[in-house]
Design a protein around this nucleic acid. Structure first.
Lengths: 108, 108
DNA sequence: TTTATAGTTCGACATGTTTCGAACTATAGA
DNA sequence: TCTATAGTTCGAAACATGTCGAACTATAAA
């Protein structure tokens, strides 16, 4: 089921976060653990490190860090230090909530 | 079914368009004709005029016009002059495509 | 304790975005 | 044809964002 409703301010922040090509790439990379039609409920199972997320993006690490901070602030991703690295994963319920926004009860 | 895949550039533009509080409000207003769990297949049946979309937003008409242009350029909405007014409606397939993006096959 | 690896924070700069009001275009009706 | 209504375009100002390199912090390993 999961009908948790995100408020408009947070929704705007999430879309703003995804409205940048680099951040969209990062988000897609993080989403790649989720099988079609299902929710990624393993959460951290397929988490990526900051360095892995930046591969192929051709941006400075400081810029990458900034983008990840934006994704985190918007509520789209979670971050946690694990030893030398910081790992990231899609915030649970995020995919469902956003899918629902376009799917159904948008009616304010 | 409808598995039309939007490319990353257009996707970024759509999210950028929705990443503004005024434009998100407009988009939600336009989506309000769609019933929960269904696609709005009447298309223009519940189209709104530019003026109607700006009601309660408390922005200048030039600003409203700019926001609608952004929503249109991103591919989220359609616009058409009907007499004295210009009417807007959600671009068909948009809601499905975006819902699918979060629902399933994000895998680039 | 020193060194290497992994990220973050900071300041600066260039570029985009939001917003307005004024001036404009398009249509319909008197 | 003149006027009112509905939107758009333009230029300017204020503000936000994306980017970098340099300097920093945190952890692990030699």
């Amino acid at each position: 089921m999961s009908n948790y409703k995100i408020d408009d301010i947070q929704l705007t922040e999430m879309f703003k976060a995804l409205g940048n090509p680099h951040r969209l790439m990062i988000f897609k990379r993080l989403s790649s653990c989720c099988q079609p039609g299902t929710q990624c409920d393993l959460e951290q199972a397929m988490a990526f490190s900051v360095g892995e997320l930046g591969e192929g993006l051709d941006i400075a690490s400081s810029t990458l860090s900034h983008h990840l901070k934006e994704l985190h602030r918007s509520g789209l991703i979670e971050m946690e230090r694990q030893g030398k690295r910081v790992v990231c994963w899609i915030a649970p319920e995020t995919l469902n909530s956003l899918s629902n926004f376009f799917n159904a009860d948008i009616n304010s």
